[in-house]
Computed example of a mutant assay.
Amino acid sequence: MPEFSASHVVWTSRVKDAFGTVVELEDEEGRVSDYSIESEFDVAGSSYAVLRAEGDRNAEPEIFKIISGENGALELVTIDDDDEWENVSELYDELTFPE
């Protein structure tokens, strides 16, 4: 398993640079929702974006993996691997709420 350590985080802004501070995401039922980009970072050779439902500061942030799709376009995908999600989630908590 790659190292998910705060000392290995590189802050990025690729999604924000490509789409602005708010992105539209479509769920499995075809509903579109707006999300604010909280932060983006690279760690352990992968890229992640932390999003929050637009207009709801009390909503839990959601973490997505950033991948390059067809023609190099950026895509946000759900993290399906439980271990990867847990590691990234814990790392984000550590970065957001340092002890």
Rank of each mutant, 00 (worst) to 15 (best):
M1S: 13
P2A: 09
P2W: 00
P2Y: 01
E3P: 03
F4Q: 01
F4M: 04
S5C: 08
A6Q: 04
A6R: 10
S7E: 10
S7P: 00
S7C: 05
H8G: 13
V9R: 07
V9N: 09
T12Q: 11
T12L: 12
S13Q: 14
S13P: 05
K16P: 11
K16L: 12
D17V: 04
A18Q: 14
F19H: 14
G20P: 09
T21Y: 15
T21S: 15
V22F: 12
V22G: 12
L25Q: 08
L25P: 03
L25H: 05
E28T: 08
E29C: 05
R31E: 15
R31A: 11
S36A: 11
S36M: 04
S36E: 14
S36F: 08
S36L: 09
I37L: 13
E38S: 10
F41A: 07
D42Y: 08
V43K: 01
V43I: 05
Y48L: 00
V50H: 02
L51W: 06
L51C: 10
L51Q: 06
A53M: 02
A53Q: 03
D56N: 07
D56Q: 02
N58V: 00
N58F: 09
N58G: 02
A59S: 12
E60S: 10
E60V: 03
P61L: 00
E62N: 06
K65F: 06
I66F: 06
I67D: 09
I67N: 10
S68N: 13
G69H: 08
G69T: 04
N71C: 08
N71Q: 14
A73M: 09
L74A: 11
L76N: 07
L76R: 04
L76F: 05
T78Y: 11
T78A: 12
D80H: 10
D80P: 02
D80I: 00
D82H: 14
D82T: 11
D83Q: 14
E84G: 05
E86G: 11
V88L: 11
V88N: 09
S89H: 14
E90H: 13
E90S: 14
L91M: 10
Y92E: 01
Y92S: 01
D93W: 08
D93T: 05
F97Y: 13
P98F: 03
P98E: 00
